[in-house]
Write a protein that binds this DNA or RNA. Structure first.
Length: 492
RNA sequence: GGGGUCGUGGUGUAGCUUGGUCAACAUACUUGCCUUGGGCGCAAGUGAUCGUCGGUCCGAAUCCGACCGACCCCA
């Protein structure tokens, strides 16, 4: 068949490529066709549609509730940051300036001082903290912000994964001791790990970033890294120890219990809608999206099977309504698809593409059996379940789906993680399978840069819990004494 | 940073080489009938200044230039 003839073939409205065969195209189609997001005007800008936004809301609600338990409070800070503030921490400024948008005009008038559109809010928040912190009794100051930030992406944007503007939360805390700040950094990282693994069912590696990859202005950065089916790593969130790198230029000091003035210790941390990209890539299949029940805006969809000639249409529909209310009162997020202009088959395909974890089919046959058909999105497995005890059966199935997605993703991570002891091994694995490659590194920036140049991979994470004895182990590139056990990968 | 592909109703495309008679096909959408346990069918309709701006020409979706945007590969 020629290409021209092919173009005239009727295309079904579902996903037209296989995940295995054309991963990028598959991803784009899932995002657009499941109506998670759409492109907008302007480079790298996207619209998050309700199907996508509600997933984000579920992530947000979980995280928000958890940080409030530990005393964090939400606040809001301006979108625009005066240039002079952004410049206060030199390294931070230098790191961000290539991707900052500037506002230079107000109406027709040139501004005397340009405003940066926030790429992150450390500077404007620290500027305020300076006014709020007087004594050790004002600490810790635990703030969180839900907002969007803008970073000019020169090349290769991808919905959710890399966009010009993105939604996230940024936490900013000030502490009276370094130890307390470091504890905060680590507790937040643990919470992020729970978001990734418990909510999104995406397993992660955690640890520190190398100095090259750390947040500009931080003492160190801790990170969560996941691996996608195409073998590329995706950073799911970061938690930074800022030390006194900001409190000194911003002069944020407090009078301690000891009667002396001290600079505060800062942390900052963020997790963005990028995690939704990881969710899509990790769990989806050739039919489209698969949502973990924990974050699915709709966990179950009820599809009535109605025959007009059977004159049982009303009976079926009212039974569906009844089941819907029953499941809703049990706390499930349920939708009833009673559209008359689509056939059941059409609806099955549509809801599968949109990733709804569980489908309930109710037809005349089921009503006379006092049962319904439950169909799992992840496995496609169908079973007939008695109406009596339906809620319990649904709960069990949703939990099984969540667990099964998790286990599959866990296996993906294991399959995509390999070990290399020589550079040629490292290079070969990265060429062939990509994925995480664990190996040893001397700690020098030069080796790190060279490996990046030669393979395209960088150090994604220096895991916590380094081997206690590295004697006899050598750097994968320069062969000098190893200092760190690390994971390399090509990254999004 | 380097290279490449692409932009035509909501969606997917044809037409472009050789400028006019070319804006077409499928699908979606609307209305009516009919159907409904895995993407039903029939009929009649709606819908496009051919990405934007400029140039060449009697005449531009088609040729030229710039810009905007999307995608892919490599680093």
């Amino acid at each position: 068949m020629s290409d021209k003839q092919k173009n005239f073939q009727v295309e079904k409205p579902g996903i037209t490529v296989k995940k295995q065969e054309d991963f990028s195209e598959w991803y784009t189609q899932v995002v657009l066709k499941a109506e998670l997001a759409d492109y907008s005007s302007g480079k790298g800008f996207i619209v998050i549609r309700p199907n996508g936004y509600e997933i984000w809301e579920n992530v947000k609600n979980f995280f928000d509730a958890e940080i409030k338990k530990t005393g964090h409070r939400n606040a809001y800070f301006p979108t625009l940051i005066p240039e002079s503030l952004l410049k206060k921490e030199a390294e931070h400024f230098a790191g961000f300036v290539p991707e900052v948008f500037w506002v230079t005009k107000a109406g027709n008038n040139e501004l005397s001082e340009p405003f940066a559109v926030r790429p992150t809010s450390e500077t404007i928040i620290h500027d305020a903290m300076k006014r709020w912190i007087r004594s050790w009794r004002d600490l810790p100051l635990l703030l969180n912000v839900w907002n969007s930030v803008l970073r000019a992406e020169i090349k290769s944007t991808k919905p959710f994964i890399r966009t010009t503007e993105f939604l996230w939360q940024e936490g900013h805390t000030a502490h009276s001791s370094e130890q307390e700040a470091e504890k905060e950094v680590s507790e937040i990282l643990d919470l992020y790990k729970r978001v990734a693994e418990e909510l999104l069912a995406v397993p992660v590696l955690i640890g520190k970033k190398s100095d090259k990859e750390k947040f500009v202005g931080a003492v160190y950065t801790t990170t969560l890294e996941s691996i996608m089916p195409d073998g590329r790593a995706l950073q799911m969130g970061t938690s930074h120890h800022l030390g006194q790198n900001f409190s000194r230029p911003f002069e944020i000091r407090f009078l301690g219990e000891d009667g002396e003035m001290h600079y505060v210790w800062h942390t900052s941390w963020g997790i963005s809608w990028r995690t939704l990209g990881a969710l899509i890539m990790t769990h989806g299949d050739d039919k489209g999206l698969i949502l973990p029940p924990t974050v699915a805006p709709v966990q179950l969809v009820i599809v009535p099977i109605v025959f007009s000639e059977s004159s049982k249409a009303n009976e079926v529909l009212s039974k569906c309504q009844e089941i819907k209310s029953q499941l809703q009162s049990s706390g499930f997020r349920v939708s009833l698809d009673s559209r008359e202009n689509y056939t059941p088959g059409w609806k099955f395909n549509e809801w599968e593409m949109k990733g709804i974890p569980l489908r309930i089919e109710v037809g005349p046959r089921d009503i006379s059996n006092k049962s319904v058909i439950l169909v799992r999105r992840d496995s496609g497995k169908k079973e007939s379940v008695p109406l009596e005890g339906l809620s319990q059966a649904v709960l069990t199935l949703l939990e099984e789906i969540q667990r099964s997605l998790w286990e599959k993703a866990k296996k993906l991570l294991e399959d995509k993680t390999k070990n290399a002891s020589t550079f040629s091994e490292l290079s070969e694995i990265l060429d062939r399978d990509s994925g995480f490659v664990s190996t040893y590194w001397c700690g020098s920036r030069e080796c790190e840069d060279q490996i990046k140049d030669k393979t395209g991979a960088d150090i994604r994470v220096i895991p916590f819990g380094q081997p206690s004895d590295m004697s006899g182990l050598n750097c994968v590139l320069c062969n000098s004494k190893a200092k760190f056990f690390v994971y390399f990968a090509k990254a999004y």
